[in-house]
Design a protein around this nucleic acid. Structure first.
Lengths: 219, 219
DNA sequence: TAGATTGTTAATCGATTAACAATC
DNA sequence: TAGATTGTTAATCGATTAACAATC
């Protein structure tokens, strides 16, 4: 009988594990700080920031404490400095290359979405199967055929793929972009997709959100 | 000094609190069971169902156990019976009246979304401010002016409002639909909205999802 | 009956919040 | 200095998972 791998020093011993929830909130902070900066507000306390976002001040401080000490006791945080730090942490201080697959209503909504282009995201390509769309330009992005998807994704060096296609084609498409060396997938398709562990996948499911709201309608 | 309110018998003592995460997953189960039913699969174990959804079998069983005993030991669950039970729990066994506010790309994507009409959701109205859109019909839903929003929402008896408008107008619109007696809001607007406790609000934030993915690109 | 799977408890894991000494 | 707010620890709360007796 072998021992259970209790004493394994796994992956990185000193690099403390960052909860996923923290990363989500960091994006939220980043956006709010952007707004504050725009309003020429130069400093803010964890209390003020948490009030703006409807959360707990201790949570804000603890989230930030995972990455360093960015505040000044008695004063709070300097808005632009904190924003810069968070962008560095999230890696949105550099260009992130995004490929959009599926230029239907949702795909077009994403292309039009300000926050999508804001920040560092650059939509380097959009793909669709429909001859009506191929060759057309949406928000400055020209739509290409999915015929040579794998090669094109590779050539363009996309980091993230945004998937907004029908469920039937999802897995086959995922297989192609995985071979093309993509690093992360934002999946709007209401179907489970399988891909290697190393690739981070986020699901956004519009239907599930609505359906679970229905539960709370009880009176 | 007063005692802390430890012995308060608050709200409903016997009705055990259901975690929000459970409700989300119930929708997921519901959809998968629908698919299975369509494939004429009549029974399924927690192990099989959890494999299909990429989760843990104990979680499936525990989620269901909040609401009753729906399975047969040694056998598993009967697909259509379980589906019916979950729909009853989620209240999607009856018509849910949805009003869409904002018929831009995202709004149109939602109207076109199959799962939106599937189930019991009925889009009873769509609203927009643009004269180009008012009067037009999308997926069988006619677009109305937002001029008499409050009255119309009230008259149509909408339960849930789906918000897909620019951030600037969000709060004013929320105030109107709250006065109109709406019960829940699905908010796609990347801004915090405030409304009475009794109204359940879900946020879906497309930008945040993308931005937090960026963090995981580290190599 | 033998085999399989449920429902449920206990253990673990992860996230949130309160509290406060340290610090500006 | 007095007042305010941070960073951080400990306490609490909530969610997941393992394990297994009960059951078909």
């Amino acid at each position: 009988m072998t021992d259970s791998p209790k004493n394994d020093v796994s992956v990185a011993a000193d690099e403390k594990k960052i909860p996923k929830a923290v990363i989500k909130r960091l994006s939220l902070y980043s956006r709010m700080l952007q707004e504050l900066e725009h309003k020429n507000i130069t400093k803010i306390s964890s209390k003020e920031l948490s009030d703006l976002l409807g959360m707990n001040p201790a949570k804000v401080r603890k989230d930030l404490a995972y990455f360093g000490q960015f505040g000044v006791p008695g004063l709070g945080y300097y808005v632009s400095e904190l924003k810069a730090q968070i962008k560095r942490i999230l890696r949105t201080d550099r260009e992130i290359r995004v490929a959009l697959i599926g230029v239907g209503h949702l795909g077009q909504a994403l292309l039009a979405y300000g926050g999508f282009l804001r920040q560092s995201f650059r939509v380097v390509a959009a793909f669709d199967t429909s001859p009506d769309k191929i060759g057309r330009t949406f928000n400055g992005v020209k739509v290409m055929s999915t015929e040579h998807l794998e090669d094109q994704i590779r050539t363009l060096g996309a980091d993230i793929v945004v998937l907004a296609i029908p469920a039937e084609n999802a897995q086959a498409t995922v297989d192609q972009v995985v071979r093309a060396g993509i690093r992360a997938i934002l999946n709007f398709v209401p179907a489970r997709i399988v891909c290697p562990e190393a690739i981070k996948v986020h699901y956004v499911d519009l239907g599930i959100e609505l359906e679970s709201l229905s539960y709370y309608l009880k009176d």
